[in-house]
Design a protein around this nucleic acid. Sequence first.
DNA 1: AGCCTGACCTAGG
DNA 2: TCCTAGGCCAGGC
Length: 111
Amino acid sequence: MSDLYERIYTIVRQIPQGRVTSYGAIARCLGTKSGARMVGWAMNASHVTNVYVPAHRVVNRNGMLSGKHHFGGSTVMEDLLKSEGIEVVDDQIMDFGKHFWDPFVELKIKI
DNA sequence: AGCCTGACCTAGG
DNA sequence: TCCTAGGCCAGGC
């Protein structure tokens, strides 16, 4: 596994329960060169990985569950988020800004 | 090797 | 304010 993937997984694993972040935020945290698409690609690969990655806490910048179809089931992602106390309506996270978890702030302290 | 695609984002018209 | 185009990198064919 490449370093990039590992770094992405590390960041995603830092997301606390009931919080969410965006692909772009993670991408920026790693440096814009990586690109937000790579984060999504890494999430896709995370299904195969033996390490647990809470990919359901990562959404696009609008707070929309663009990756729900990749969870195998149809409402698995939505269910997981709801079980963590996040309100999801019509594939959209309510109060996204409220639940938003900024990698910059946390990683500044953690790393 | 080249082309197409993808769980994205930003900028310009 | 909505729509289009471009940029980014990795993988499949």
